[in-house]
Amino acid sequence: MVTAEDVRKIAKLADVGIDDSEINEFTNQCSGILEYFAVLDTLDQNQPLIRERYNILRDDEVLPSLSQEEALQNAGQTEKGYFKAPRVM
């Protein structure tokens, strides 16, 4: 069982934004689905997934980078060669 408060907290952690009008719907759906997932909790061992392949590495070689123009071409807002983003302070 998860509460509306849990869902709000998680939505905040995920920066997805939830309206008050949606919170009940999301809470009910998540509750139902997480309850369904609870079948997993009946498993008692925590056996990690076996991965046969390992040490897939590349050599330390430099290849050409994108130009500044290419790097910025999809950005919504740029300034002096930088990406423009919201404030953090």
């Binding site: 300034e79 002096k80 060669g81 930088y82 990406f83 423009k84 983003a85 404030r87 953090v88």
Partner: peptide
């Protein structure tokens, strides 16, 4: 008016 400029 505050914002962030990012260089990767």
């Amino acid at each position: 008016g505050k914002y962030t400029l990012v260089d990767y």
